[in-house]
Computed example of a mutant assay.
Amino acid sequence: MANTAPASYKELLRVAEVTDIEEVFEQIPDDHRFKGEWKVPKALKSEAALSKHLTSILRKNISAADHISFLGAGCWQHYVPAICDEMVTRTEFSTNVWGTPSSDHGRNQVWFEFSSQLGELVGMEFVGLPLYSYGTAAGHALRMAARINGRNRVVLPASLDPERAKVIETYCGYKELNGHLEITYVKFDPSTGRLDLADLKSALGSDVAAVYFENPNYFGALESEAAEISRLAHEVGGEVVVGVDPISLGIVAAPSQYGADIIVGTTQTLGVHMNAGGGVGGFIATRDEEKYAREYPTLQVSLTATTEPGEMAFGLTLFHQSSYGSREEGKDWTGNSVYLWAVANATYMSLMGPQGFIDVGNSIIARANYAAKQVGSV
């Protein structure tokens, strides 16, 4: 292995100012140290042997290609058109998803198209580049809302996906941390799966920064009183943050139509494979108003005129307020993200078009009803 040659090893110890490697591990408690012998199998003699060995292990798995997965809840098995895979594997995208302006071989344009198309789908004008997941998008959005109105409590449905709830709780932080947000969970009606409006009313107050709910929710139910939920939140001066699966928006009203101020959701359903959980991504969308734009922690791509008459160019905007531009002074930490999936998302949305989203939405409803009847007949 690299740096295990005697001369290199000796030089590393010298630079680290230690005489023995054990000094590096002194901080690890003795009862946490492994003291046995590693039972590592002997090295395989060739790449062909390694490939055969790994294939034999992978054959033990049962994949979603052989058995349909109904798990959903953040990672859905939808068909991915071949063109999506073709686009994300093109070298101008797969090797240049980040870098200096000189590395842009169409990257900025496809990111711009991602934001534009998704904005049209959810009914908002301002869409940031994608984040790690649905949960991280929701967490950032709630923190955005708190910065906008200076409040420190958020209201969430108890019906939330447990994993997404944990992510949001992490973003709200511990009490000892700056920017900590208190969370109030609101009950749901067990007979319908929908939010309990009476409990929501009792949870609202002048300290509420935002009310968050999802449509459809974790149980797959549509919040038929979504407009009333938004009205109640606005009545106390809170922001309305709505989570949505964009693939539903061909047949379900966009959250912007029933009072959402900030819309978040998944991007995985837009042309990205499940990838054993690695295909997830999230987005944040708002109206094109300065109070929202100034609180985005994400990167944004915009279009502007150049010094050449009639020429337009793509570029990053509001870069300074991100953690990329200002590090710990940025609005929030976003770290690396899933910008390559934005290429697949933009490809999928352009391929589907408005009618395609209507068709896939109707197909999902028909298949879901059929599956429910089949299960109910057992």
Rank of each mutant, 00 (worst) to 15 (best):
L177A: 14
L177K: 06
L177C: 12
N178W: 11
N178F: 15
N178I: 04
G179R: 07
G179K: 05
H180Y: 12
H180W: 10
H180I: 12
H180Q: 07
H180E: 11
L181Q: 00
L181F: 08
L181C: 13
L181K: 00
L181E: 03
E182W: 00
I183C: 11
I183F: 02
T184K: 09
T184W: 01
Y185M: 14
Y185K: 09
Y185G: 14
Y185H: 13
V186H: 01
V186Y: 01
V186E: 00
V186P: 02
K187N: 15
K187Y: 04
K187P: 03
F188C: 13
F188R: 02
F188K: 04
F188H: 10
F188S: 15
D189N: 15
D189T: 10
D189S: 12
P190Q: 12
P190A: 08
S191E: 10
S191P: 00
S191Q: 13
S191V: 00
T192M: 07
T192I: 11
T192C: 09
T192S: 15
G193N: 08
G193L: 04
G193Y: 03
R194L: 14
R194Y: 01
L195W: 05
L195A: 07
L195P: 04
L195H: 08
L195C: 09
L195Q: 03
D196F: 03
D196Y: 01
L197I: 11
L197S: 05
L197M: 12
L197H: 00
A198C: 10
A198I: 04
A198Q: 11
A198Y: 01
A198E: 15
A198L: 11
L200R: 06
L200P: 06
K201Y: 00
K201C: 07
S202C: 01
S202F: 05
S202L: 09
S202W: 08
S202T: 06
A203P: 06
A203I: 06
A203D: 13
A203N: 15
L204S: 14
L204D: 13
L204M: 15
L204W: 13
L204G: 14
G205D: 15
G205T: 14
G205S: 10
G205I: 02
G205R: 05
S206A: 08
S206R: 07
S206M: 09
S206H: 01
S206F: 07
D207I: 05
D207V: 02
D207F: 00
V208M: 00
V208H: 00
A209N: 07
A210D: 03
A210N: 07
A210L: 07
A210F: 02
A210H: 06
A210G: 02
A210E: 07
V211Q: 01
V211L: 12
Y212G: 05
Y212P: 05
Y212I: 01
Y212Q: 12
Y212K: 08
F213I: 13
F213E: 14
E214W: 05
E214M: 12
E214N: 13
E214P: 03
E214R: 05
E214Q: 12
E214T: 11
N215A: 03
N215L: 01
N215D: 12
N215I: 07
N215K: 09
P216C: 06
P216T: 01
P216L: 03
P216I: 01
N217K: 07
N217Q: 09
